[in-house]
Design a protein around this nucleic acid. Structure first.
Lengths: 402, 402
DNA sequence: GCACTTCGGCAACAGCGTTGCGAAAGTAGG
DNA sequence: CCTACTTTCGCAACGCTGTTGCCGAAGTGC
């Protein structure tokens, strides 16, 4: 029944209960990174179990029958029955009514039991810490906010650890069996794999701080850190659903006080060799153009934000569109999503402006399928925190990410 | 003993001999595209077998012992013994001497039997067709060249099919049991999945032609088509070896009569949603700059080639570097490789110029690890054809690509 | 010649998905 | 109400996977 968080992705919490979600989160058995990648039977089971869980989640409250699961996964109905029986025994799935009959025994509908697992997502912003408690569905079942006073010199990163820990403990007792861990999203470059911060924008004193391990020690649960744009992109990827296990790819472009991006390729966040991918803002689109804060010239961020400051929203959108077109051409993604405060101030203008650039590009190329669509990213101010929670939830459903 | 080519990736060739390489090439069991992605025992075996084959290939003539294979894959020695026994029975692997003893029984060294499988790689260029016959190691064991007279209007794509078929048949009888198939690399946009050409540069009359299926029908063996830059990048990825199963990522930038790129992420070629990724040349780095042939303005290709035409190699390299820096920032890749005739004309200048831009970027970022290295792509004029052969060989070793 | 170390295959095993088959639970028709 | 049919789904046996326990094979070192 219990959902022990295992000891995979961070410091464990002592001997957990029966093998639960944690054991599932491991594998992938796929072409991921890592050394060996040899797959054994446990890996096989974990992979298929995660696949089934992902479909159950995608089905939502409506549920999904065993035979549908079999069709979608390519597994035999009997294999699905075994897997779902295990999930029901673990409390992760449950029967939920039955479909209308088509002339025979009606299909039994299965659904995910969202309460079987939880994760905390924390959004550390410039002046605020926002934490949400999400269940397996990603539904927010608790929220807390608090100011962040770490701006002053001398106020080290420990202050942030303490503030984040306070918010987390206020949301969920760390001994709760269903707590998978805590995901923390914050701006600026950092190393996702090691959990070490690098020159986070606005907080120079955090350079080199090992936030993940410090917070994991403090809270006693697994912790994952990532860039805010990656968290937002992950949240959007989950929200989209993507065929259940699809190869969905899109770029989330965030225009706020800065300009960043989160890339989703094959259903998972693409982080790159040093987990620094997605640096969209300092893409040069105007050789020898106006200087940017980063020291280079003609960056998208500098051009776009300058246009915004001048009140020329159309020009800002055109610049953003040029950067997006470069990105689309290089990666051949399917969708561009726009978000952030600046976009929210004039959503239609930005969507139209970026769309126009991509449409012109598609016309020139003449490729079948038409232009890559541009849409406003759904979700409100809480979406980064929700995405941060998905940093822990997604692996349960086989969305390890790159 | 025989290595039937199975019937996976294209029209089969009738009932093959014993299950061989073809059966291995299928799976991945991973996070690839496709619908189901449910993994069964066959998928598991194929995955692990491909992994072992990849390590055997990477070990080269020196070979590798069973225990080393076990360490590298994470499998138990006994599992490796079973897998290698199967491979030896199929003729894909063989014992090759033994290591020096370390106080006990010396390890038996295993090696790949390259002659157990072959693939033909064809490079269709503007005025020439070049075909190579490669064994499992990728070693070229046969080569043919012939002129291509398809430029004239009216000369349809069938002429090319016939010319390619003639070269292939001259190299390898299509009934040879060890022939896995034919890979064809050609310039310009095309759909890798369906094998349909789109406006191949220089051959407008090929628009919409289903080259893959036409050639497969003509030859009776599986055919795969891809962009020339992707083929070259795949060849480079294989040549690098990459830890055996590593997450190697790099960009191959080709500067010839045009400017293209092949992206390797996670050891496989990244092709994107519509298999059109890697369009590096028409990345805009000079908003409202000089017009490009593509109809846009300020593309890298236009700027770079114009600088080359003016004799300003340094400026050309700087422009290329700016594009490469954008790419590195977006994807966080580990390496940039340069190739093509234009680069070959002044290799040091290009490598130095691109390096300088990336070094400056790394200095600004201040990230650990230093700048992304820039190197000249190894291999000569034959490398695209060799890479095209890898389109068939790579899947045998689990390098499906994205 | 003996003790020791290390490699690698044989045999038994647990666990995976698969297949064959039958019980359960509906609809359709008398 | 009863029967015939369809469809779902679980039990049991099966083949195959990697794993474990064990032992012979083949070296080194004393």
């Amino acid at each position: 029944m219990g959902v022990g968080a295992g000891g995979d992705a961070g410091p464990g919490r002592g001997p957990g209960a029966s093998p639960g979600v944690g054991a599932v989160a491991r594998v992938g058995a796929g072409a991921g990174a890592g050394a060996g990648a040899g797959a054994n039977l446990l890996a096989l089971r974990s992979h298929n179990t995660a696949l089934v869980l992902d479909l159950l989640r995608g089905a939502g409250a409506g549920g999904i029958s065993r035979l549908e699961l079999a069709e979608r996964t390519g597994l035999t109905p009997q294999a699905v029955s075994k897997i779902t029986a295990r999930l029901r025994a673990q409390g992760l799935a449950a029967e939920a009514g039955r479909r209308a009959s088509t002339g025979g025994k009606p299909r039994t509908v299965l659904r995910l039991v969202p309460e079987a697992g939880h994760a905390v997502g924390v959004h550390v912003d410039r002046d605020e810490v926002r934490a949400v408690l999400a269940d397996l569905n990603g539904t927010v079942v608790g929220e807390r906010r608090g100011p962040l006073h770490a701006g002053g010199p001398g106020a080290g990163a420990e202050v942030v650890v303490e503030e984040v820990a306070r918010q987390v403990e206020g949301l969920a007792p760390p001994v709760a069996e269903s707590l998978l861990g805590v995901g923390v999203a914050l701006p600026g470059p950092l190393d996702h794999r090691s959990g070490v911060l690098h020159r986070v924008t606005g907080f120079p004193q955090w350079e080199g701080f090992g936030l993940r391990d410090a917070l994991a020690r403090r809270l006693g649960v697994p912790v994952v850190v990532d860039k805010d744009t990656n968290a937002a992109a992950l949240g959007l990827a989950v929200a989209r659903g993507d065929d259940g296990g699809g190869a969905g790819s899109f770029a989330y472009l965030h225009v706020g006080t800065g300009l960043g991006a989160g890339l989703v390729i094959g259903g998972g966040v693409h982080r790159g060799a040093r987990t620094g991918a997605g640096e969209f803002g300092h893409q040069v689109i105007q050789l020898d153009g106006p200087p940017c804060e980063c020291g280079d010239r003609g960056c998208v961020e500098a051009l776009c934000l300058a246009a915004v400051a001048r009140g020329e929203t159309e020009e800002a959108a055109r610049v953003l569109g040029a950067g997006a077109a470069n990105l689309v051409g290089l990666l051949d993604i399917e969708l561009v999503l726009l978000g952030g405060r600046t976009v929210a101030a004039a959503p239609d203008a930005f969507v139209a402006g970026v769309s126009a650039v991509l449409a012109a590009r598609a016309r020139r190329e003449g490729l079948p399928g038409g232009a890559v669509p541009v849409r406003l990213a759904p979700g409100g101010e809480r979406s980064v925190a929700e995405g941060a929670a998905q940093l822990l939830l997604a692996p349960v459903f086989g969305r390890g990410g790159g």
